[in-house]
């Protein structure tokens, strides 16, 4: 049976792990490669690096970080942030990433998703959707770290990028990110029901019950969190034990 994945996310800026509260007030939480090794040993199912400054500082992506992590962590690694072109995807895959996540670039030009999926396969193309609630039951895409409104409906956009060939959706609720108030369940459920591919729920995890809710109520195939793991509130093992106790299949070995 396929297991529900628990994914610690390392937000990276200037080569260091940070975690913003609603994407401001960054707090330095360590060296990304060291953190990746620790999560590898703790039983994380995947790792995710997001280069949170890449888009608005126009920086390139994190080839060196991918390479050093892949040399020491034999587990799946997704990298996002500042990914704009098919060549960016190729470079990250060669450096050591297993999946590459588009964000703003896919909003500006959904066809870049098709070009990348045609070249490398849907299985390694993730589209990150950062959505804010604009009305009850309506969510809109925001880009550039949540600062820029696009007017694009999140559920429609999810359907569009899946049709273009995206293999997975990384869904972040900008209303909840950094709040520790739990996932935005209606948003997660709406996107999960709308697409045929796995959805990773992200944004707002404060307790282990939130992880359970993302799966049982939100319909997510994977749950992503940062703060509760980075600051030692809970281990990956505790998260999985809690999910298993709630009847969710997880990889415990």
């Amino acid at each position: 049976m396929l297991k529900t994945r628990v994914i610690p996310c390392l937000d990276v800026a200037d080569g260091r792990v940070v975690k913003g509260v609603n994407f401001v007030d960054l707090v330095d939480a360590g060296d990304p490669v060291e953190a990746a090794i620790a999560y590898n040993e703790a039983g994380a199912d995947e790792l995710c690096f997001l280069d949170i400054h890449a888009t608005h500082e126009n920086r390139g992506t994190m080839y060196d970080l991918a390479t050093r992590t892949a040399e020491q962590c034999f587990m799946p690694l997704t990298i996002g942030g500042g990914v704009r072109t098919v060549d960016d995807v190729r470079s990250l895959l060669l450096a050591g990433a297993d999946k590459v996540s588009f964000n703003s670039a896919a909003v500006a030009d959904p066809d870049v998703v098709a070009r990348a999926a045609d070249r490398f396969g849907s299985q390694c193309i993730v589209v990150a959707i950062d959505a804010k609630t604009v009305a009850p039951g309506r969510w809109e895409i925001f880009t550039h770290g949540g600062r820029r409104s696009t007017g694009v409906d999140a559920v429609e956009f999810a359907r569009t990028v899946i049709a273009k060939g995206a293999g997975e959706i990384l869904l972040t609720s900008m209303d909840r990110d950094g709040t520790r108030a739990g996932f935005n369940i209606p948003l997660t459920r709406a996107i999960s029901d709308a697409v045929s591919v796995p959805v990773i729920a992200s944004g707002g995890v404060g307790t282990l019950d939130h992880l359970v809710e993302g799966v049982t109520e939100g319909g997510a195939s994977a749950v992503l969190a940062a703060s509760i793991f980075h600051f030692g509130d809970h281990t990956i093992g505790e998260a999985k034990a809690h999910m298993a106790a709630a009847g969710i299949p997880v990889r415990l070995s």
């Binding site: 297991k3 045929s196 796995p198 195939s221």
Partner: peptide
């Protein structure tokens, strides 16, 4: 209801 791609850890 099972998603495709089959993505993740399976036994």
């Amino acid at each position: 209801s099972l998603k495709v791609p089959h993505m993740g850890w399976n036994d």
